[in-house]
Nucleic acid binder design. Structure first.
Lengths: 144, 144
DNA sequence: TTGCGTGCAAAGGTTTTGCATGGCA
DNA sequence: TGCCATGCAAAACCTTTGCACGCAA
């Protein structure tokens, strides 16, 4: 589509933000995390600027925006060629809040199974598995 | 399981809220919509109360909580299954909103795999697969 | 110089929390 | 009567918008 609007100017802030997201690989960040990352450095960036840059980058497809199921805040992540988060699952620990990226062949079969048997095309970007992670499992007594 | 915490008291508000959600069948509502629905009736309910009831109902698995695509506000939907929803997965169609209960042995293996390989105990009550259902799949053109 | 980029501050919206009161058992 | 439930108000958040100033081209 024609929506492309290359930035007119190159700015220090724009580069800092993009570089940071790139450096995270397939990890994702929130606006707040980005702001805090630069907070006391000489690369400090205002949060309004972060929002505006992320919006543009997402519109251009350079990064991806999505809402985790808990819906508290939006997450952004760099779209690095072929391998990104749309190809693996996310496990969210309900106890400690950790978000785990699960890259695994078996999990990949899930998508095929759902499509083949249930005719359901899963959106891995939106889907989050809730549960209890390794660290928190021992802490929880036998439960049920 | 010990997690059940039946309401101690039956209140008019609690019943109004649940009845309303039930009456919507598979439709979903936001907190604001619920508050407004009762607003000028004699069943008026405070929004704080709505939030608190929905939270409890979702924890018990009576209703389910979703985040819309835009992530602006949460949606809630009645879970009409008589079967134990804690023992199968749920597929939520992002296009038509349908909620599909997937009872399937293969899917059951997912829980075991996650626990065995990733040491992650999944909570099926909270976990929802987002994607596109059978009916809506053809409607989506090749997309990209 | 031009006009986009920046960032402070304030607005707008959703959800949570504090606290005094009301109502169910 | 003992508590939990309720709901107003305020706080806590996340995100957007207005506006004046700064900076890249």
């Amino acid at each position: 589509m024609a929506g492309k609007r290359p930035e007119k100017y190159h700015t220090r802030q724009g580069r800092s933000i993009l570089d940071y997201i790139k450096s995270l690989g397939s990890g994702h960040v929130t606006v707040t995390q980005i702001v805090r990352h630069f907070e006391d450095t000489e690369e400090a960036v205002g949060q309004t600027t972060v929002y505006r840059h992320l919006e543009k980058l997402a519109a251009k497809g350079v990064i991806r925006k999505y809402i985790l199921h808990d819906g508290k805040s939006a997450c952004y992540q760099y779209v690095s060629g072929e391998k990104h988060c749309s190809e693996h699952f996310h496990l969210k620990c309900e106890t400690c809040g950790a978000l785990i990226h699960a890259d695994c062949d078996f999990l990949d079969e899930i998508a095929q199974h759902l499509l083949g048997k249930h005719h359901f095309q899963i959106n891995m970007l939106k889907t989050v598995f809730y549960g209890t992670c390794k660290k928190c499992l021992p802490a929880r007594d036998g439960s049920r």
